[in-house]
């Protein structure tokens, strides 16, 4: 880890208006969704649930909010995938033109 060169008050001063603008953008987008027809159907969309979870993480403490939000928006990993995908017969056979 490289120590952040700036102090927290310096970072806050530099980013306050930026963060404010981003929060307002999200708020306005959610308002737009609610104003539109069939808003309820969006609320049952799993992606809306992901957005809700992401917003909850923003309010939590800690250093890894960005990584946690990335994980919310990620597909599930199956550790046994290789057995399912790559049976022995499907292991690569090199073409004869490749020098050995």
């Amino acid at each position: 880890m490289i120590a952040a060169v700036q102090t927290a008050p310096e970072v806050f001063e530099q980013t306050f208006l930026l963060v404010r603008a981003k929060i307002l953008e999200v708020a306005a987008t959610l308002d737009r969704l609610d104003r539109a027809e069939a808003a309820e159907s969006v609320r049952s969309d799993p992606r809306f649930g992901q957005i809700r979870q992401g917003l909850e993480i923003l309010l939590s403490d800690g250093f890894h909010r960005a990584a946690q939000i990335q994980e919310i928006f990620s597909d599930q990993y199956d550790p046994t995938w290789m057995k399912k995908y790559l049976s022995t017969g499907e292991r690569p056979a090199l073409s004869p033109s490749v020098p050995h």
Binding site: Q70, E71, F73, S74, D75, Q76, Y77, W81, M82
Partner: peptide, 12 residues
């Protein structure tokens, strides 16, 4: 959404 799973598969 494919990144985390795909990166793990690649590393595997």
């Amino acid at each position: 959404q494919d990144k985390l799973k795909g990166t793990r598969m690649i590393i595997d």
